[in-house]
Design a binder for these strands. Structure first.
Length: 270
DNA sequence: AGCCAGGACAAGT
DNA sequence: ACTTGTCATGGC
């Protein structure tokens, strides 16, 4: 008998949208409609149906891993309603209700967003998939862990050639070396103010402001981190020439996720 | 076929 | 301090 745990879904929660809105790159939907992905060394299958969430694990594992990963205990209803003070955010949130910010593992987040630079999402997913298949461990048939920094810091650019990551290969290696050696200290980034993380992460070659902000938001849970990619820059130029509205203060990163997805996908921009 | 992609870097003003 | 060309690769 396979393990299963069910729980009532929060009122504001869209699993599929959250796992496929450009913050994580490895989740796939299977033939039963369950979202499947690897966290650490475990394959998780999550399904949202009729206001309920089901997981292929026990309650203890849900509490120790997925509760935090899915940002389960944050009150998104109250938070997003506070965004309604701004008309554009109200439109974005209303159209794509239920997007949440994931709390992913820092190294995977950093590495993934290094790969993301000047790249498109389908191709980012392909490179990351090849990275895991080439250097991760096969934890179940066809499913691989994300290779840790220690595993990658011994690699050369030629070793990474099968990924077809282009000029980013050397950046991945520099990140692996600085993280594995502790020159970039994840524990200290985690426990420090966001300004420390901003300075620390850009010591890595290939990590600029945008990649650093993504890592701080999705990997270190810094809600105020504000990644400005080409889409968010468009939004800022078009709708917020004087900066983000006051109602997002302290949660700019979360507001950013709605704006990013809205600007890319809404029919109202086509 | 050509433009663009969840950018960063180096060289040039 | 700001602007511009360049970097691999391939999706659309």
């Amino acid at each position: 008998m396979k393990k299963e745990f069910k729980i009532k879904a929060p009122e504001v929660f869209n699993l599929e949208l959250t796992l496929d809105c450009g913050q994580a790159f490895r989740w796939e939907k299977d033939e039963n409609g369950a979202m499947c992905g690897v966290i650490g060394n475990t394959l998780y299958k999550i399904k949202q149906e009729n206001g309920e969430l089901s997981f292929n694990c026990g309650k203890e594992e849900f509490d120790s891993v997925l509760r935090d990963y899915l940002d389960f205990d944050r009150d998104y209803k109250t938070l997003t309603e506070s965004f309604f003070a701004d008309e554009h955010l109200k439109a974005a949130v209303s159209e794509f209700n239920g997007i949440r910010i994931l709390h992913q593992q820092p190294w995977e987040t950093l590495c993934s967003f290094i790969i993301s630079q000047n790249n498109n999402i389908p191709r980012i997913k392909g490179i990351i998939k090849r990275l895991c298949e080439s250097f991760g461990d096969e934890i179940e048939e066809g499913w691989y862990s994300f290779p840790d920094a220690e595993r990658l810091c011994g690699c050369t650019v030629e070793d990474l050639a099968p990924l077809r990551s282009g000029f980013r290969a050397k950046y991945i290696i520099d990140a692996a070396e600085k993280v594995a050696s502790g020159e970039v200290n994840f524990e200290k980034i985690k426990s420090s103010d966001i300004s420390f993380g901003r300075e620390e992460l850009i010591k890595i070659k290939g990590v600029g402001k945008k990649v650093a902000e993504c890592t701080l938001l999705y990997g270190f849970g810094k809600d105020e981190a504000f990644p400005e990619d080409v889409w968010v820059k468009r939004i800022m130029a078009e709708l917020y020439p004087d900066g983000m509205p006051e109602c997002t203060k302290g949660y700019e990163g979360i507001a950013q996720q709605y704006l990013f997805h809205w600007r890319r996908n809404s029919e109202s921009f086509k």
